[in-house]
Structures are given as C-alpha cells and as structure tokens.
Amino acid sequence: MHIVLFYHSILSDWNHGNAHFLRGIVRELEERGHRVQVYEPEKGWSLQNLVEGSSKDKLDELQEYYPGISTSFYTLESIDLDAVLRDADLVLVHEWNEHELVKRIGEHRANGGKYKLLFHDTHHRAVTERESMAKYDLTHYDGVLAFGQKIRDLYLQEGWAQKAWTWHEAADISVFYPHEKKEYEGDLVWIGNWGDEERTAELHEFLINPVKELGLKAKIYGVRYPEHARKALAEAGIEYGGWLPNYKAPEEFAKYKVTVHVPRRPYVEALPGIPTIRPFEAMACGIPLISSPWNDAENLFTPGEDFLVARSGDEMKQQLQSILNNPAKAKGVAAHGLETIRSRHTCAHRVNELEKVCGELGIAESKIYLTPKEKILHEE
C-alpha cells in the first residue's frame, strides 16, 4: 500500500508521547514493504520546543535509533493535497492536527479521492474537551481508529463517525527492549511530564511522598514541571533530569530497579481501559512496574502479575519495598510483563489489526499483504 500519514510530529517527542507509537507504526509498515509518507506542520510546537531547548542536535541522534526516519513539512496555505494524495491507498490523520486540515482532507476524499481515509484519536480530549473534538469534520472519513473502547463508543454515540475501531497504542520493541543491567545507579526512575495539573495530587501520593518516606534514590525525567513541582522533588531528594528523548528511556530503565505508572485523572475517572503508552514501554524494557489504580476494563494485562497495583500511598510504599527487597519477585514481575507485551502488545500486533481494518474497508488483499505466506505470518 501507499500510505500517507498526517502527524503533529514524528521527529519530536517533546511533550508529544504519541510520537513513540507513531514512529513504531511507520517502521513496521515500511518493514512489511508498504510505502509510507509522513507529513507534519512546519514549525509545530513539539519540534520547535525540541530545537530551541536542546543543547545538541537531537535530530541527528534520532537517526541513530530510527535510521531513515523522515517527514515532509507543510503549511495549510501551501499544501497541495492533489499532489500529496494522488497515489494513496490509505490516509491516516492523527487528532493533533488543525481542524481545517482535517476538513480539507475529508473534502478531498469526497471529491474523487480513491484512498480510504481514517481519523486516529489517541487522547482524552473526546471526553475532556468534547466541544473542540466535535468540531472536527469527519463527514467524509471512512472511520476512526480510537485508542480505547470508551473513545470508540463515544464517536459512534455522538454521531461523529459511522464506523470506528479500537486501536490501542503499543510498544515499539525495536527500540524498547531490555538492556543489559551493568550496575544500578539508583532505586527508582520515573519518566513522564507534569503537565496541566491533571495528576498533581496523584504524583505526590504515589511517587514523591513514597520515595521521600522510604529514603529511596530516585530520578525523574520530563517537561513542563512548574516551580512548585521542582521544589517538591528537591525536598524529597529526587533528582530532576529534565527532558529525556523517549528513545533513551530503555537505557535509563536499565539503571534502576523499579518504575511506577501514575495515569492522569481523566483516564482513571472517565476512560477505563486506556493505560497510555508509558506502561507498555516500561514492561517492554523488562523493568518491574507498580501502578496507581486504573481499571483495565479491556483486559489488556493481568494486574498483579504483569505489574503490581498500589491503591494508596501506603500500598505504594509496601509494593516498592516488596520489589526492592525481593529480587526474585522483581524478576518475576518484570518477566511476566515483558512476555505479555511481546505476545500481545507490539507495533507489529497493531499493524496486524490495521491491515484487518484495511480489508474491511475494501482495500485489495494484494495491496495489504505482499504474499500469501506473509499474510499467514502476520495473522499468527
């Protein structure tokens, strides 16, 4: 297939966690022989922050982890959709795009476009910013890929789309895999952005306070940490590492004994079943994971075996001690989570699912699958 993808950015993951998954999908599609083109807006906010805030050329470094990764920049004023979409078989438009672009691509599809057109939603805004999401004109789209059942159902219930499929994020195991543990630099590492005060209380209860009260050696990476957050980290004795390119996360996980997952409040309260990308990647790297509460409504994992669950700050302290003081248990939890990722939740699994959606949309099997043999391998 010739696949055209409209992303906010594939080059930058600065406060743009979706880039992790999207990069993996592009790599997997290309490895299967599909021709993939990515378009992202010129001067997008994530890339601008990366370029302005980095002390070295991270774009060159990115090529070391994703050889050949590339994108085409556009502006709404100059993009020529006739030229961009001329030979496309499948077009995916991610939800971090301007309303105008989403609408114009839909109109292009209606005016004779021969491709299948899907909208891809990987955020909680369908619930928390419903008015803004409702303004996306998906009239001429063939359907929606939603990263959770709750989001999928909402598109259908609200009449925003006629068809929708659940398409969870997953780990890109070409980058996220266990690295050799030579010598630990500390007890706990956490990689995540502060962002929008959506989990401030939770970060204190499940991360900062337990580290402080147990006297652990810990390090935190991320962006958008306000002054009060950095002060709280310092008072807890936690080192703040600033922004970390996501492809560096596996190397950091290998230096610590445990990590935690603290989902943002909208996912806990309104979007059960959506874990976001971070736990997929942590488990793929073979580090024991402890999570604050979230409802695994879609049975993606086995809580208690793939990762431990802490329902309160006190339980988090107990779970941390159980991992740090029991190497055999730590090894067992890490191994179970790693096996679950590799057997069910990789970018290869998600491309398998995407290919099935393409078949439902009527794209010829000869374009979806290169050979009958490869089709069988992809379905296994």
Score class of each variant (00 low, 15 high):
Gln37Met: 08
Val351Pro: 08
His179Ile: 06
Val91Tyr: 11
Leu47Val: 12
Ile69Phe: 10
Ala110Glu: 11
Glu360Ala: 04
Cys358Phe: 03
Ala249Ser: 10
Asp13Val: 14
Asp57Lys: 06
Arg344Trp: 08
Thr71Lys: 04
Glu374His: 12
Glu198Thr: 12
Asn111Trp: 03
Leu101Asp: 10
Glu227Gly: 10
Lys367Asn: 06
Lys217Ser: 02
Glu180Gln: 14
Thr276Trp: 00
Asp121Val: 09
His8Leu: 15
Tyr247Thr: 07
Lys181His: 13
Asn246His: 15
Trp96Ile: 05
Trp190His: 14
Phe147Pro: 01
Pro263Gly: 02
Met283Thr: 08
Lys217Ala: 00
Ser343Leu: 02
Glu30Gly: 07
Gly148His: 09
Lys181Gln: 15
Ile363Ser: 03
Tyr66Asp: 12
Leu101Ile: 06
Leu90Asn: 07
Glu98Thr: 13
Leu138Thr: 05
His179Leu: 11
Tyr136Val: 00
Leu214Gly: 01
His20Ala: 14
Trp160Leu: 12
Leu216Trp: 12
Asp296Gly: 06
Tyr115Met: 11
Glu374Met: 11
Asn15Phe: 13
Val309Phe: 03
Ile363Asp: 03
Pro372Val: 06
Met283His: 09
Leu5Gln: 13
Gly17Ala: 13
Glu28Trp: 03
Trp190Leu: 08
Leu233Glu: 08
Ala88Pro: 09
Ala348Pro: 09
Ser54Asn: 05
Phe307Asn: 05
Glu281Tyr: 08
Lys116Met: 09
Glu315His: 05
Gly359Cys: 06
Gln321Asp: 08
Asp142Lys: 06
Leu76Asn: 07
Ala19Gly: 10
